[in-house]
Design a protein around this nucleic acid. Structure first.
Lengths: 251, 251
DNA sequence: CTTGACCCTGACCCGACGTCAGGCCCTAGT
DNA sequence: ACTAGGGCCTGACGTCGGGTCAGGGTCAAG
Protein backbone atom coordinates (compact mmCIF):
# COMPACT_ATOMS: atom_id res chain seq x y z
CA UNK A 1 0.00 0.00 0.00
CA UNK A 2 2.09 2.89 -1.19
CA UNK A 3 -0.56 5.38 -0.21
CA UNK A 4 0.78 8.20 -2.29
CA UNK A 5 -1.21 11.36 -2.00
CA UNK A 6 -1.64 13.92 -4.70
CA UNK A 7 -2.46 17.61 -4.53
CA UNK A 8 -4.92 19.07 -6.99
CA UNK A 9 -2.36 20.44 -9.39
CA UNK A 10 -0.50 17.15 -9.44
CA UNK A 11 -3.59 15.17 -10.22
CA UNK A 12 -4.56 17.78 -12.75
CA UNK A 13 -1.26 17.29 -14.56
CA UNK A 14 -1.50 13.53 -14.46
CA UNK A 15 -5.02 13.37 -15.75
CA UNK A 16 -5.09 16.39 -18.02
CA UNK A 17 -8.05 17.83 -16.25
CA UNK A 18 -7.98 21.40 -15.01
CA UNK A 19 -7.82 22.23 -11.35
CA UNK A 20 -11.09 24.02 -11.72
CA UNK A 21 -12.71 20.90 -13.05
CA UNK A 22 -11.50 18.93 -10.06
CA UNK A 23 -12.95 21.61 -7.80
CA UNK A 24 -16.16 21.30 -9.71
CA UNK A 25 -16.25 17.54 -9.37
CA UNK A 26 -15.72 18.00 -5.68
CA UNK A 27 -18.51 20.51 -5.19
CA UNK A 28 -21.02 18.41 -7.08
CA UNK A 29 -19.90 15.37 -5.14
CA UNK A 30 -18.65 13.48 -8.15
CA UNK A 31 -15.09 13.15 -6.94
CA UNK A 32 -14.40 14.15 -3.38
CA UNK A 33 -10.75 13.92 -2.41
CA UNK A 34 -10.28 11.21 0.16
CA UNK A 35 -8.50 13.59 2.48
CA UNK A 36 -7.59 17.14 3.36
CA UNK A 37 -4.61 18.70 5.08
CA UNK A 38 -5.12 20.87 8.13
CA UNK A 39 -4.95 23.85 5.83
CA UNK A 40 -7.80 22.45 3.82
CA UNK A 41 -5.73 21.38 0.83
CA UNK A 42 -7.34 18.59 -1.13
CA UNK A 43 -5.50 15.26 -1.01
CA UNK A 44 -6.27 12.55 -3.53
CA UNK A 45 -5.16 8.96 -3.15
CA UNK A 46 -4.91 6.18 -5.67
CA UNK A 47 -8.50 5.08 -5.32
CA UNK A 48 -9.42 8.63 -6.32
CA UNK A 49 -7.21 8.25 -9.35
CA UNK A 50 -9.11 5.18 -10.44
CA UNK A 51 -12.43 6.84 -9.90
CA UNK A 52 -11.28 9.80 -11.93
CA UNK A 53 -10.34 7.51 -14.76
CA UNK A 54 -13.82 6.05 -14.71
CA UNK A 55 -15.27 9.52 -14.72
CA UNK A 56 -13.17 10.55 -17.68
CA UNK A 57 -14.12 7.54 -19.73
CA UNK A 58 -17.78 8.19 -19.15
CA UNK A 59 -17.42 11.90 -19.71
CA UNK A 60 -15.51 11.40 -22.92
CA UNK A 61 -18.48 9.49 -24.18
CA UNK A 62 -20.78 12.36 -23.35
CA UNK A 63 -22.51 11.08 -20.27
CA UNK A 64 -23.75 13.89 -18.01
CA UNK A 65 -21.85 14.19 -14.74
CA UNK A 66 -24.98 13.59 -12.68
CA UNK A 67 -25.44 10.32 -14.45
CA UNK A 68 -21.82 9.33 -14.05
CA UNK A 69 -22.17 9.98 -10.36
CA UNK A 70 -25.23 7.80 -10.05
CA UNK A 71 -23.53 4.98 -11.94
CA UNK A 72 -20.38 5.06 -9.88
CA UNK A 73 -22.23 5.46 -6.61
CA UNK A 74 -24.66 2.69 -7.31
CA UNK A 75 -23.87 -0.08 -4.83
CA UNK A 76 -24.78 -2.52 -7.55
CA UNK A 77 -22.17 -0.93 -9.77
CA UNK A 78 -19.62 -3.39 -10.92
CA UNK A 79 -16.41 -1.88 -12.13
CA UNK A 80 -15.57 -4.76 -14.35
CA UNK A 81 -18.85 -4.83 -16.25
CA UNK A 82 -18.74 -1.07 -16.48
CA UNK A 83 -15.32 -1.16 -18.03
CA UNK A 84 -16.35 -3.85 -20.45
CA UNK A 85 -19.38 -1.77 -21.31
CA UNK A 86 -17.27 1.30 -21.84
CA UNK A 87 -14.92 -0.59 -24.04
CA UNK A 88 -17.94 -1.47 -26.14
CA UNK A 89 -18.91 2.19 -26.36
CA UNK A 90 -15.42 3.08 -27.40
CA UNK A 91 -15.57 0.47 -30.14
CA UNK A 92 -18.85 1.99 -31.23
CA UNK A 93 -17.11 5.30 -31.34
CA UNK A 94 -14.33 3.87 -33.41
CA UNK A 95 -16.99 2.67 -35.85
CA UNK A 96 -18.70 6.04 -36.12
CA UNK A 97 -15.37 7.73 -36.54
CA UNK A 98 -14.60 5.40 -39.40
CA UNK A 99 -17.99 6.14 -40.83
CA UNK A 100 -17.39 9.86 -40.59
CA UNK A 101 -14.14 9.42 -42.42
CA UNK A 102 -16.02 7.68 -45.20
CA UNK A 103 -18.50 10.52 -45.18
CA UNK A 104 -15.72 13.05 -45.58
CA UNK A 105 -14.25 10.97 -48.35
CA UNK A 106 -17.61 11.04 -50.05
CA UNK A 107 -17.70 14.81 -49.75
CA UNK A 108 -14.22 14.98 -51.24
CA UNK A 109 -15.30 12.78 -54.09
CA UNK A 110 -18.26 15.06 -54.67
CA UNK A 111 -15.93 18.03 -54.92
CA UNK A 112 -13.72 16.25 -57.37
CA UNK A 113 -16.40 16.46 -59.95
CA UNK A 114 -18.37 13.27 -59.87
CA UNK A 115 -21.29 15.18 -58.50
CA UNK A 116 -23.44 12.14 -58.70
CA UNK A 117 -23.55 11.90 -54.98
CA UNK A 118 -26.80 11.89 -53.12
CA UNK A 119 -26.79 14.95 -50.95
CA UNK A 120 -28.91 13.32 -48.30
CA UNK A 121 -26.16 10.83 -47.66
CA UNK A 122 -23.57 13.34 -46.63
CA UNK A 123 -24.75 13.27 -43.07
CA UNK A 124 -24.33 9.55 -42.83
CA UNK A 125 -21.57 9.48 -40.31
CA UNK A 126 -23.26 11.86 -37.97
CA UNK A 127 -26.29 10.11 -36.73
CA UNK A 128 -25.76 9.01 -33.17
CA UNK A 129 -28.98 7.03 -33.42
CA UNK A 130 -27.75 5.10 -36.38
CA UNK A 131 -27.91 1.80 -34.57
CA UNK A 132 -31.29 2.34 -32.98
CA UNK A 133 -31.36 -0.86 -31.02
CA UNK A 134 -27.89 -0.46 -29.68
CA UNK A 135 -28.48 3.09 -28.69
CA UNK A 136 -31.64 2.42 -26.82
CA UNK A 137 -29.59 0.55 -24.32
CA UNK A 138 -26.70 2.91 -24.47
CA UNK A 139 -26.77 4.32 -21.02
CA UNK A 140 -27.65 1.08 -19.38
CA UNK A 141 -30.06 1.51 -16.55
CA UNK A 142 -30.81 5.04 -17.50
CA UNK A 143 -32.83 4.28 -20.53
CA UNK A 144 -34.87 6.61 -18.43
CA UNK A 145 -32.24 9.21 -18.97
CA UNK A 146 -33.62 11.01 -21.97
CA UNK A 147 -37.21 9.97 -21.86
CA UNK A 148 -37.76 11.00 -18.33
CA UNK A 149 -35.03 13.51 -17.68
CA UNK A 150 -37.56 16.12 -16.79
CA UNK A 151 -39.33 13.99 -14.28
CA UNK A 152 -36.31 12.42 -12.67
CA UNK A 153 -34.25 15.51 -12.27
CA UNK A 154 -36.40 16.74 -9.46
CA UNK A 155 -35.78 13.58 -7.43
CA UNK A 156 -33.73 13.90 -4.32
CA UNK A 157 -31.15 11.41 -3.15
CA UNK A 158 -33.70 9.87 -0.81
CA UNK A 159 -36.19 9.56 -3.62
CA UNK A 160 -33.62 7.61 -5.56
CA UNK A 161 -33.01 5.39 -2.60
CA UNK A 162 -36.66 4.63 -2.17
CA UNK A 163 -37.11 4.00 -5.85
CA UNK A 164 -34.19 1.66 -5.93
CA UNK A 165 -35.39 -0.13 -2.81
CA UNK A 166 -38.80 -0.67 -4.29
CA UNK A 167 -37.18 -2.04 -7.41
CA UNK A 168 -35.01 -4.38 -5.40
CA UNK A 169 -38.01 -5.62 -3.55
CA UNK A 170 -39.83 -6.58 -6.72
CA UNK A 171 -36.79 -8.30 -8.13
CA UNK A 172 -36.13 -10.12 -4.89
CA UNK A 173 -39.68 -11.41 -4.88
CA UNK A 174 -39.22 -12.58 -8.45
CA UNK A 175 -35.94 -14.28 -7.63
CA UNK A 176 -37.71 -16.01 -4.75
CA UNK A 177 -40.39 -17.29 -7.10
CA UNK A 178 -37.78 -18.47 -9.55
CA UNK A 179 -35.90 -20.36 -6.89
CA UNK A 180 -39.19 -21.87 -5.74
CA UNK A 181 -39.60 -23.32 -9.21
CA UNK A 182 -42.53 -21.15 -10.26
CA UNK A 183 -43.35 -20.87 -13.96
CA UNK A 184 -43.06 -17.53 -15.74
CA UNK A 185 -46.81 -17.54 -16.39
CA UNK A 186 -47.71 -18.21 -12.78
CA UNK A 187 -50.31 -15.67 -11.66
CA UNK A 188 -48.14 -14.31 -8.85
CA UNK A 189 -45.21 -13.93 -11.18
CA UNK A 190 -47.32 -12.08 -13.71
CA UNK A 191 -48.52 -9.80 -10.95
CA UNK A 192 -44.93 -9.05 -10.03
CA UNK A 193 -44.11 -8.34 -13.66
CA UNK A 194 -46.93 -5.85 -13.76
CA UNK A 195 -45.76 -4.25 -10.54
CA UNK A 196 -42.42 -3.85 -12.22
CA UNK A 197 -44.06 -2.10 -15.14
CA UNK A 198 -46.07 0.18 -12.87
CA UNK A 199 -42.97 1.04 -10.93
CA UNK A 200 -41.31 2.25 -14.08
CA UNK A 201 -44.45 3.97 -15.17
CA UNK A 202 -44.73 5.79 -11.89
CA UNK A 203 -41.16 6.86 -11.41
CA UNK A 204 -39.73 7.21 -14.85
CA UNK A 205 -41.95 7.48 -17.85
CA UNK A 206 -45.27 6.28 -19.20
CA UNK A 207 -44.69 2.60 -19.70
CA UNK A 208 -47.22 0.71 -21.76
CA UNK A 209 -47.29 -3.08 -21.89
CA UNK A 210 -45.71 -2.90 -25.32
CA UNK A 211 -42.91 -0.71 -24.11
CA UNK A 212 -42.41 -2.96 -21.15
CA UNK A 213 -42.03 -5.88 -23.52
CA UNK A 214 -39.45 -3.88 -25.41
CA UNK A 215 -37.55 -3.27 -22.25
CA UNK A 216 -37.68 -6.93 -21.40
CA UNK A 217 -36.07 -7.69 -24.73
CA UNK A 218 -33.28 -5.42 -23.74
CA UNK A 219 -32.85 -7.06 -20.39
CA UNK A 220 -31.84 -10.28 -22.04
CA UNK A 221 -30.00 -8.89 -25.02
CA UNK A 222 -27.96 -6.18 -23.37
CA UNK A 223 -25.01 -7.54 -21.47
CA UNK A 224 -24.99 -4.91 -18.80
CA UNK A 225 -28.62 -5.44 -17.91
CA UNK A 226 -28.33 -9.14 -18.05
CA UNK A 227 -25.26 -9.18 -15.84
CA UNK A 228 -26.99 -7.00 -13.32
CA UNK A 229 -29.93 -9.37 -13.13
CA UNK A 230 -27.87 -12.52 -13.18
CA UNK A 231 -25.76 -11.31 -10.31
CA UNK A 232 -28.89 -11.32 -8.23
CA UNK A 233 -30.09 -14.73 -9.31
CA UNK A 234 -29.13 -16.97 -12.15
CA UNK A 235 -31.71 -17.01 -14.88
CA UNK A 236 -33.52 -13.98 -13.53
CA UNK A 237 -33.15 -11.90 -16.66
CA UNK A 238 -34.76 -14.50 -18.86
CA UNK A 239 -37.37 -15.26 -16.23
CA UNK A 240 -38.41 -11.65 -15.91
CA UNK A 241 -38.37 -11.15 -19.66
CA UNK A 242 -40.57 -14.18 -20.17
CA UNK A 243 -43.01 -13.06 -17.49
CA UNK A 244 -43.15 -9.58 -18.95
CA UNK A 245 -43.85 -10.90 -22.42
CA UNK A 246 -46.67 -13.07 -21.17
CA UNK A 247 -48.06 -10.27 -19.08
CA UNK A 248 -47.97 -7.97 -22.08
CA UNK A 249 -49.80 -10.49 -24.25
CA UNK A 250 -52.54 -10.86 -21.66
CA UNK A 251 -53.32 -7.16 -21.74
CA UNK B 1 -29.88 22.58 -60.71
CA UNK B 2 -32.54 20.87 -58.71
CA UNK B 3 -32.78 23.72 -56.26
CA UNK B 4 -34.62 21.81 -53.63
CA UNK B 5 -35.46 23.86 -50.59
CA UNK B 6 -35.74 22.54 -47.08
CA UNK B 7 -37.64 23.85 -44.08
CA UNK B 8 -35.97 23.80 -40.69
CA UNK B 9 -37.57 20.62 -39.47
CA UNK B 10 -36.69 18.82 -42.67
CA UNK B 11 -33.07 19.83 -42.44
CA UNK B 12 -33.12 18.98 -38.78
CA UNK B 13 -34.25 15.47 -39.58
CA UNK B 14 -31.72 15.01 -42.32
CA UNK B 15 -28.80 16.22 -40.30
CA UNK B 16 -29.78 15.07 -36.84
CA UNK B 17 -29.50 18.55 -35.46
CA UNK B 18 -32.33 20.08 -33.48
CA UNK B 19 -34.41 22.92 -34.84
CA UNK B 20 -33.26 25.01 -31.94
CA UNK B 21 -29.66 24.43 -32.90
CA UNK B 22 -30.37 25.59 -36.44
CA UNK B 23 -32.01 28.70 -35.03
CA UNK B 24 -28.94 29.20 -32.90
CA UNK B 25 -26.61 28.83 -35.86
CA UNK B 26 -28.70 31.37 -37.67
CA UNK B 27 -28.66 33.95 -34.91
CA UNK B 28 -24.91 33.71 -34.43
CA UNK B 29 -24.46 33.93 -38.17
CA UNK B 30 -22.91 30.52 -38.53
CA UNK B 31 -25.51 29.14 -40.88
CA UNK B 32 -28.00 31.60 -42.30
CA UNK B 33 -30.63 30.00 -44.49
CA UNK B 34 -30.22 31.14 -48.05
CA UNK B 35 -33.84 32.20 -48.23
CA UNK B 36 -37.05 32.95 -46.42
CA UNK B 37 -40.70 32.67 -47.37
CA UNK B 38 -42.99 35.70 -47.10
CA UNK B 39 -44.10 34.35 -43.77
CA UNK B 40 -40.53 34.38 -42.58
CA UNK B 41 -40.02 30.63 -42.72
CA UNK B 42 -36.38 29.66 -43.10
CA UNK B 43 -35.51 28.00 -46.40
CA UNK B 44 -32.28 26.08 -46.79
CA UNK B 45 -30.85 25.02 -50.12
CA UNK B 46 -28.23 22.46 -50.98
CA UNK B 47 -25.31 24.78 -50.48
CA UNK B 48 -26.58 25.23 -46.96
CA UNK B 49 -26.59 21.48 -46.55
CA UNK B 50 -22.95 21.30 -47.49
CA UNK B 51 -22.06 24.10 -45.17
CA UNK B 52 -23.90 22.38 -42.38
CA UNK B 53 -21.94 19.23 -42.98
CA UNK B 54 -18.73 21.19 -42.66
CA UNK B 55 -20.01 22.72 -39.48
CA UNK B 56 -20.87 19.35 -38.02
CA UNK B 57 -17.51 17.86 -38.81
CA UNK B 58 -15.75 20.73 -37.12
CA UNK B 59 -18.13 20.74 -34.21
CA UNK B 60 -17.78 17.02 -33.70
CA UNK B 61 -14.10 17.60 -33.25
CA UNK B 62 -14.74 20.19 -30.60
CA UNK B 63 -14.01 23.38 -32.46
CA UNK B 64 -15.89 26.36 -31.02
CA UNK B 65 -18.63 27.69 -33.25
CA UNK B 66 -17.02 31.12 -33.50
CA UNK B 67 -13.92 29.49 -34.84
CA UNK B 68 -15.85 27.33 -37.28
CA UNK B 69 -17.50 30.44 -38.55
CA UNK B 70 -14.23 32.21 -39.11
CA UNK B 71 -12.79 29.22 -40.91
CA UNK B 72 -15.72 28.81 -43.23
CA UNK B 73 -16.06 32.51 -43.88
CA UNK B 74 -12.41 33.03 -44.60
CA UNK B 75 -12.16 33.92 -48.28
CA UNK B 76 -8.94 31.95 -48.31
CA UNK B 77 -10.82 28.93 -47.08
CA UNK B 78 -10.47 25.99 -49.35
CA UNK B 79 -13.06 23.29 -48.91
CA UNK B 80 -10.85 20.58 -50.22
CA UNK B 81 -7.90 21.25 -47.96
CA UNK B 82 -10.26 21.67 -45.06
CA UNK B 83 -11.81 18.30 -45.69
CA UNK B 84 -8.42 16.68 -46.02
CA UNK B 85 -7.44 18.35 -42.79
CA UNK B 86 -10.55 17.14 -41.07
CA UNK B 87 -9.98 13.64 -42.28
CA UNK B 88 -6.61 13.85 -40.61
CA UNK B 89 -8.24 14.96 -37.37
CA UNK B 90 -10.66 12.10 -37.57
CA UNK B 91 -7.78 9.70 -38.01
CA UNK B 92 -6.17 11.24 -34.98
CA UNK B 93 -9.37 10.63 -33.14
CA UNK B 94 -9.42 7.05 -34.25
CA UNK B 95 -5.94 6.72 -32.80
CA UNK B 96 -6.87 8.22 -29.44
CA UNK B 97 -9.96 6.06 -29.30
CA UNK B 98 -7.82 3.02 -29.85
CA UNK B 99 -5.48 4.26 -27.19
CA UNK B 100 -8.35 4.73 -24.77
CA UNK B 101 -9.45 1.19 -25.43
CA UNK B 102 -5.99 0.01 -24.50
CA UNK B 103 -6.18 2.14 -21.40
CA UNK B 104 -9.45 0.52 -20.41
CA UNK B 105 -7.97 -2.88 -21.08
CA UNK B 106 -5.12 -1.97 -18.78
CA UNK B 107 -7.58 -1.01 -16.08
CA UNK B 108 -9.35 -4.33 -16.57
CA UNK B 109 -6.08 -6.15 -16.25
CA UNK B 110 -5.39 -4.26 -13.06
CA UNK B 111 -8.70 -5.38 -11.66
CA UNK B 112 -8.01 -8.96 -12.55
CA UNK B 113 -5.34 -9.10 -9.96
CA UNK B 114 -2.09 -8.39 -11.65
CA UNK B 115 -1.84 -5.15 -9.80
CA UNK B 116 1.56 -4.54 -11.19
CA UNK B 117 0.25 -1.72 -13.24
CA UNK B 118 1.64 1.76 -12.98
CA UNK B 119 -1.19 3.95 -11.84
CA UNK B 120 0.15 6.97 -13.61
CA UNK B 121 -0.37 5.24 -16.93
CA UNK B 122 -4.08 4.81 -16.58
CA UNK B 123 -4.71 8.20 -18.06
CA UNK B 124 -2.73 7.44 -21.14
CA UNK B 125 -5.55 7.51 -23.59
CA UNK B 126 -6.86 10.78 -22.41
CA UNK B 127 -4.24 13.29 -23.20
CA UNK B 128 -5.33 15.43 -26.08
CA UNK B 129 -1.85 16.91 -26.18
CA UNK B 130 -0.22 13.55 -26.62
CA UNK B 131 1.26 14.45 -29.95
CA UNK B 132 2.51 17.88 -29.03
CA UNK B 133 3.86 18.81 -32.41
CA UNK B 134 0.79 17.71 -34.26
CA UNK B 135 -1.46 19.50 -31.90
CA UNK B 136 0.31 22.79 -32.12
CA UNK B 137 -0.91 23.13 -35.65
CA UNK B 138 -4.25 21.57 -34.93
CA UNK B 139 -6.51 24.44 -35.59
CA UNK B 140 -4.58 25.68 -38.52
CA UNK B 141 -4.57 29.41 -38.71
CA UNK B 142 -5.80 29.76 -35.21
CA UNK B 143 -2.66 28.72 -33.52
CA UNK B 144 -3.66 31.99 -32.01
CA UNK B 145 -6.79 30.34 -30.77
CA UNK B 146 -5.72 29.26 -27.34
CA UNK B 147 -2.73 31.46 -26.78
CA UNK B 148 -4.55 34.62 -27.52
CA UNK B 149 -8.15 33.73 -26.95
CA UNK B 150 -8.48 36.40 -24.34
CA UNK B 151 -7.12 39.10 -26.55
CA UNK B 152 -8.85 38.13 -29.75
CA UNK B 153 -12.29 37.56 -28.38
CA UNK B 154 -12.86 41.24 -27.95
CA UNK B 155 -12.23 41.89 -31.62
CA UNK B 156 -15.18 42.94 -33.70
CA UNK B 157 -15.85 41.76 -37.22
CA UNK B 158 -14.31 44.94 -38.58
CA UNK B 159 -11.25 44.40 -36.47
CA UNK B 160 -10.86 41.00 -38.04
CA UNK B 161 -11.25 42.50 -41.45
CA UNK B 162 -8.58 45.09 -40.83
CA UNK B 163 -6.25 42.52 -39.35
CA UNK B 164 -6.70 40.22 -42.26
CA UNK B 165 -6.24 43.07 -44.72
CA UNK B 166 -3.01 44.10 -43.08
CA UNK B 167 -1.84 40.52 -43.25
CA UNK B 168 -2.74 40.25 -46.90
CA UNK B 169 -0.85 43.43 -47.61
CA UNK B 170 2.33 42.10 -46.10
CA UNK B 171 2.03 38.81 -47.92
CA UNK B 172 1.26 40.54 -51.20
CA UNK B 173 4.34 42.67 -50.81
CA UNK B 174 6.38 39.54 -50.16
CA UNK B 175 4.89 37.78 -53.16
CA UNK B 176 5.80 40.81 -55.25
CA UNK B 177 9.40 40.63 -54.05
CA UNK B 178 9.51 36.92 -54.77
CA UNK B 179 8.23 37.41 -58.28
CA UNK B 180 10.77 40.19 -58.76
CA UNK B 181 13.49 37.68 -58.01
CA UNK B 182 14.56 39.12 -54.67
CA UNK B 183 16.58 36.95 -52.31
CA UNK B 184 15.19 35.91 -48.96
CA UNK B 185 17.89 37.87 -47.19
CA UNK B 186 17.25 41.05 -49.14
CA UNK B 187 16.90 43.93 -46.69
CA UNK B 188 13.39 44.81 -47.88
CA UNK B 189 12.33 41.23 -47.54
CA UNK B 190 13.71 40.98 -44.05
CA UNK B 191 11.84 44.14 -43.15
CA UNK B 192 8.64 42.59 -44.41
CA UNK B 193 9.32 39.46 -42.39
CA UNK B 194 9.70 41.57 -39.32
CA UNK B 195 6.51 43.45 -40.11
CA UNK B 196 4.84 40.08 -40.25
CA UNK B 197 6.16 39.22 -36.81
CA UNK B 198 5.07 42.55 -35.36
CA UNK B 199 1.65 42.10 -36.87
CA UNK B 200 1.24 38.83 -35.01
CA UNK B 201 2.74 40.30 -31.90
CA UNK B 202 0.36 43.19 -31.99
CA UNK B 203 -2.85 41.40 -32.79
CA UNK B 204 -2.46 37.95 -31.40
CA UNK B 205 0.17 37.17 -28.84
CA UNK B 206 3.68 38.15 -27.81
CA UNK B 207 5.77 36.90 -30.67
CA UNK B 208 9.51 36.75 -30.15
CA UNK B 209 11.90 36.14 -33.01
CA UNK B 210 12.32 32.58 -31.79
CA UNK B 211 8.63 31.98 -31.77
CA UNK B 212 8.30 33.54 -35.17
CA UNK B 213 10.91 31.11 -36.42
CA UNK B 214 8.87 28.29 -34.94
CA UNK B 215 5.81 29.52 -36.75
CA UNK B 216 7.75 29.71 -39.97
CA UNK B 217 8.67 26.06 -39.57
CA UNK B 218 5.01 25.30 -39.34
CA UNK B 219 4.22 27.30 -42.44
CA UNK B 220 6.27 24.95 -44.53
CA UNK B 221 5.58 21.73 -42.68
CA UNK B 222 1.85 22.00 -42.19
CA UNK B 223 -0.09 21.29 -45.33
CA UNK B 224 -2.89 23.63 -44.60
CA UNK B 225 -0.65 26.60 -44.04
CA UNK B 226 1.51 25.78 -46.96
CA UNK B 227 -1.45 25.44 -49.29
CA UNK B 228 -2.79 28.75 -48.16
CA UNK B 229 0.48 30.47 -48.96
CA UNK B 230 1.09 28.64 -52.18
CA UNK B 231 -2.29 29.57 -53.48
CA UNK B 232 -1.24 33.18 -53.29
CA UNK B 233 2.11 32.64 -54.94
CA UNK B 234 4.14 29.58 -55.68
CA UNK B 235 7.08 29.22 -53.36
CA UNK B 236 5.80 31.85 -50.96
CA UNK B 237 5.70 29.58 -47.93
CA UNK B 238 9.33 28.61 -48.26
CA UNK B 239 10.31 32.16 -49.15
CA UNK B 240 8.65 33.60 -46.07
CA UNK B 241 10.03 30.86 -43.86
CA UNK B 242 13.53 31.48 -45.14
CA UNK B 243 13.21 35.21 -44.61
CA UNK B 244 11.84 34.72 -41.13
CA UNK B 245 14.68 32.40 -40.19
CA UNK B 246 17.27 34.87 -41.42
CA UNK B 247 15.51 37.73 -39.72
CA UNK B 248 15.43 35.76 -36.47
CA UNK B 249 19.15 35.01 -36.66
CA UNK B 250 19.99 38.67 -37.18
CA UNK B 251 18.26 39.61 -33.93
C1' DC C 1 -63.61 28.60 -40.71
C1' DT C 2 -61.64 25.73 -37.64
C1' DT C 3 -58.21 22.32 -36.43
C1' DG C 4 -53.55 20.56 -36.27
C1' DA C 5 -49.09 20.73 -37.79
C1' DC C 6 -45.76 23.77 -38.84
C1' DC C 7 -43.13 28.26 -38.18
C1' DC C 8 -41.51 32.67 -35.80
C1' DT C 9 -39.17 35.55 -32.00
C1' DG C 10 -38.03 36.62 -27.36
C1' DA C 11 -36.73 35.22 -22.80
C1' DC C 12 -35.18 32.52 -19.38
C1' DC C 13 -32.66 28.17 -17.84
C1' DC C 14 -28.83 24.63 -17.67
C1' DG C 15 -24.42 21.94 -17.47
C1' DA C 16 -19.65 22.15 -17.24
C1' DC C 17 -16.67 24.51 -16.48
C1' DG C 18 -13.30 29.48 -17.16
C1' DT C 19 -12.06 33.44 -14.88
C1' DC C 20 -11.23 36.69 -11.51
C1' DA C 21 -11.03 38.46 -6.58
C1' DG C 22 -9.70 38.28 -1.87
C1' DG C 23 -7.29 35.72 1.27
C1' DC C 24 -4.68 31.75 3.71
C1' DC C 25 -0.36 28.39 3.61
C1' DC C 26 4.21 27.23 3.28
C1' DT C 27 8.85 26.79 2.06
C1' DA C 28 13.35 29.65 0.99
C1' DG C 29 16.22 33.54 1.16
C1' DT C 30 17.68 37.71 3.62
C1' DA D 1 11.25 37.56 11.99
C1' DC D 2 9.73 38.94 7.54
C1' DT D 3 8.81 38.80 3.04
C1' DA D 4 8.48 36.94 -1.68
C1' DG D 5 6.66 33.39 -4.64
C1' DG D 6 4.32 29.63 -5.37
C1' DG D 7 0.32 26.76 -4.34
C1' DC D 8 -4.13 26.42 -2.19
C1' DC D 9 -8.89 27.92 -0.67
C1' DT D 10 -13.86 29.65 -1.39
C1' DG D 11 -17.29 32.56 -3.47
C1' DA D 12 -19.28 34.78 -7.38
C1' DC D 13 -19.97 35.89 -11.93
C1' DG D 14 -19.24 34.85 -17.14
C1' DT D 15 -19.50 31.81 -21.24
C1' DC D 16 -20.83 28.43 -24.72
C1' DG D 17 -24.09 25.60 -26.85
C1' DG D 18 -27.94 24.89 -26.83
C1' DG D 19 -33.14 23.22 -24.17
C1' DT D 20 -37.47 24.79 -22.89
C1' DC D 21 -41.43 27.46 -22.55
C1' DA D 22 -44.63 31.45 -23.83
C1' DG D 23 -47.18 34.07 -27.03
C1' DG D 24 -48.37 34.39 -31.51
C1' DG D 25 -48.51 33.99 -36.84
C1' DT D 26 -49.16 30.40 -41.23
C1' DC D 27 -51.09 27.10 -44.00
C1' DA D 28 -53.21 22.91 -46.10
C1' DA D 29 -57.16 19.69 -45.13
C1' DG D 30 -61.66 18.87 -44.04
Amino acid sequence: MSEKNYQVAELARLSNVTVRALHHYDTIGLLAPSGRTQAGYRLYDEADLLRLQQILIHRELGMPLEQIKRSLDDPGFDQRTALVQQREHLRERARTTASMIRSVDAALAALKGDNTMDLATIFDGFDPKEHEEETRARWGESDAYKVSARRTKSYTAEDWQRIKDADQEILDALAEKLRGGAAADDADVLALADRHRLHIDRWFYPCSHAMHAGLAEMYVSDQRFEASFEKRQEGLARFLAEAVRTNAKNN
